[in-house]
Amino acid sequence: GVLRVLFLILTLIVTWLLLSKFFNVNWRNLHLKAQRWVGQDSPSCPTCMLKTSKNKCGLEKSCPPYHFAFKIRSGAANVVGPQICFEGVNVMSSVKNNIGRGLNIALINGIGTSGVLLTTDFFDMYSGNVDDLLKFMKRVSRGTLVFVASYDDVSTKLTKEAKAIFTEIGSSLVESLHFRDNWVFAGAKGIQEKSPFEQHVRNDKNTNKYDGWPEVLELGGCIPKKMD
């Protein structure tokens, strides 16, 4: 009787170990297939989620003291909207439903340590009125951080006066924008030199990643806090 009980217990243990190994392997394979299905093994996929990170806005490294963390992503063609993250919070995105075709702009109070969001807005540079953009930008006060992400087209209605305003806040590439180019930029009102936070890619049928649109741009970094 004792031997039969021991044999039964041993059989149950072996069976449990085999089943555990089987389900673990199959679960791992299923998980990998799911990752491939949503595109997580393709870093160039514009609709994929950002890699998880403990740092604000998914930056590879944390920002030093007295710096703001940010990340800007342009739109993907005219399908996937842009995204602006500041201090770990997405201030503009499709989820928040506050983005649109053209220039997507977030204004942050860059003076002091708080980094308070002042306002966000978007301006259609294809069929909209550039005067709306001019009124918005002319109200920007000294010390304000300006984050810009393109979506679809930003150039058609962008006048010399509008370009000059972005040049004054640190842009060195706004004069080079053409139809359906992608552009991401972070500047500040009252900046004394050109901003190091800017990227631009041309709409070129020979190099476009999407049909009629260039690749997505993503720009992240740490902006010093202005203490006075």
Rank of each mutant, 00 (worst) to 15 (best):
D121N: 15
C57P: 05
Q35G: 03
A106G: 03
S53Y: 12
F70H: 07
G75H: 06
F23E: 12
I13H: 13
V174I: 15
E218G: 05
N208Q: 06
T144G: 10
E193N: 04
G212Y: 15
D152Q: 10
E175F: 02
R36Y: 08
Q35M: 07
L17G: 01
F123N: 02
S44V: 08
E198S: 02
K21C: 02
F86W: 15
K61S: 15
V140P: 04
R73A: 06
L133A: 04
T167A: 13
N90C: 03
R101M: 05
F147L: 15
V140I: 14
G88Y: 10
Y210P: 01
R202V: 00
T119D: 15
R4G: 05
L134E: 15
M227V: 11
N26M: 11
V38C: 03
H178K: 12
R180H: 04
V201H: 01
A162W: 03
E87D: 15
P64K: 08
A149Q: 08
H31P: 00
I165Q: 09
N129G: 00
N208G: 04
R202Y: 05
F197W: 15
I13K: 12
T11A: 13
L17F: 13
K163R: 15
L173S: 08
L10C: 12
C45A: 09
N97P: 00
K71L: 11
R101P: 00
T207L: 08
L217T: 06
N55C: 09
R142T: 07
D131M: 10
D132W: 01
E168V: 01
K71G: 03
G110D: 02
G143N: 07
R139V: 02
L59V: 14
T144W: 10
H31F: 14
T119P: 00
K157C: 06
W183G: 00
M227T: 13
L59N: 14
V130E: 14
T113E: 09
V95Y: 10
E175L: 08
V89K: 11
N206P: 00
A149G: 09
C85G: 09
F179Q: 09
Y126R: 08
V174T: 01
L59D: 13
N98P: 00
I9R: 13
S114W: 08
E168L: 11
P64W: 14
P65G: 06
Y210L: 09
V2H: 14
Q35N: 11
W37Q: 05
W16G: 07
L107K: 02
K163L: 04
E218H: 02
V95C: 01
Q35W: 09
V216S: 12
S62V: 07
I9D: 12
L12E: 08
S53N: 12
A76E: 14
G112A: 04
L117F: 03
G110K: 03
F185Y: 09
V148H: 11
L32F: 09
E175K: 11
N78A: 05
H67L: 05
K51D: 12
F185V: 04
S150F: 08
I191T: 08
I165T: 04
M227D: 10
S94E: 15
S74M: 05
Y126Q: 14
M92F: 12
I191N: 01
C57D: 14
L32H: 11
L17E: 13
T11F: 07
S195F: 03
F68N: 05
G115K: 02
W16A: 15
N90F: 06
H67G: 02
H200T: 04
L8P: 00
V140S: 05
L18Y: 10
K157G: 01
A186K: 02
T159C: 08
L8Q: 07
S114Y: 01
F197A: 03
L158M: 06
